[in-house]
Design a protein around this nucleic acid. Sequence first.
DNA 1: CGAGTCGTTGAGTCTCGTCAATAAGCGTGG
DNA 2: CCACGCTTATTGACGAGACTCAACGACTCG
Lengths: 248, 248
Amino acid sequence: MNRTDCCLDCLTKKTCLWSDLRPVDHQRVLNIIKQHSTVRRNRGLFRAGESLRSLYILRSGSAKSWNVSEEGEERIIRFHFPGDVLGLGAISSGFYDCNLSTLDTCSVCELPFKPFQRLAEELPDLNYQLLKLMSREIAQEEQRIFLRANRSAPVRLASFLNCLSRSFGECGYSTREFNLTMGRREIANYLGLALETVSRTFSQFQDEGMLQVEGRRICVTNQARLAQLSGKYMGLDESVCPSRWVCH
Amino acid sequence: MNRTDCCLDCLTKKTCLWSDLRPVDHQRVLNIIKQHSTVRRNRGLFRAGESLRSLYILRSGSAKSWNVSEEGEERIIRFHFPGDVLGLGAISSGFYDCNLSTLDTCSVCELPFKPFQRLAEELPDLNYQLLKLMSREIAQEEQRIFLRANRSAPVRLASFLNCLSRSFGECGYSTREFNLTMGRREIANYLGLALETVSRTFSQFQDEGMLQVEGRRICVTNQARLAQLSGKYMGLDESVCPSRWVCH
DNA sequence: CGAGTCGTTGAGTCTCGTCAATAAGCGTGG
DNA sequence: CCACGCTTATTGACGAGACTCAACGACTCG
């Protein structure tokens, strides 16, 4: 498998950092990418507090960002899927702000940060892609907030599954049938629920005929109901926010 | 008040976008800043879905980012304080991803995005500052997660007040005594609680002698207890995450 | 002065967390 | 190959804590 594959893979998701570059510049990016590697399940890519060496592009597999609370408990911040760039939170301080570990076998591209940054300074298009990527991360926080701020367990879990389903779709997999790469404990942690509640809610969804659940194997049997339950965001409603309210 | 003040104000917080530039470059940034303006309470700077015109630097006052859920309810994403740059989530799509409105009288600098971006391409230091700013935003999500994912109302509110206290400190105000610029309803919305619960928890804190509460006026009378309750994050613990677990 | 908003407090209900028991799955090693 | 321990998931019983509904006072703004 040659280096170009790394880019091709990323293209399956909305943004590839260097997809828009001229071929000659494209090659310069490829030159600084360290040979991609395969990482087994439950390994760490970096730990909180280590100094920023590289950004990583997740080509396949899934991962989690997490931290340790004062009481020594794990706190999951984000789950990651193919196309995600890992380590963006480290740029501000120069140190990774969280731990990153794999949930299953992953393939990653390593992007040594210093050389990459220097190259980005030379190539405005590349730099802009990086900005866009970080901006997307900021914009997505909004969705993740919904997962946790909502009180009801069914809505949280449904939103989570909906996000997951969408992520799988973006990677070219089925949105209806998929395997969870994270356990009930991790889902509960992420959603701010007790793991028993997560388990019960899965059972409840199954009883209602919305899902078929077999351990980590999920089959969505009523996608419309799932989407409805997970109450997505919508654009701004004029009635809530009249236009004269905004000052330009 | 001249334009340089804008930068001076930002310096009260950790990062000013152009504080490290050479004087000649510094001036170029100032040239593209639109004259800062004062915005009254409860006004909008931009709305979700509008195309990205400018980033805004909040010089004084406070604001909130919010969105409207499917049911037409407001959902507060973040509160903003002096030094924050507003609109970063819009860079990825070219459209603002949320609504931004002021909580009290604000002073803002407008940074027209296109000219600013072009300038950043020429000035690596400026560009790097922008990256760092966005990275910080991403890293901070972790803190905001804690506010909502934690089940207990007292811990959520204590964490919130602790964050707020720190923000006020960074702006040069007292960390012990301050006025909340947001109402109980907004705090409840942000923390994912019922407003009655927020009100009750304030009363509880007061009964315990941790706070003095008079409407929106807060005086922290036991800062240590507040910090303790709000269980902050800590760095990585070796016992939880042995070093050989990470693969380089 | 009255309407509306905001904050507080009480009573009752219900969801979800805790504790506990059980079963299923997995890897290890005899 | 099976026994064993460990982890993971499910389910039940119970209670604490938070939400809902409601009433009330304080304050602001026309």
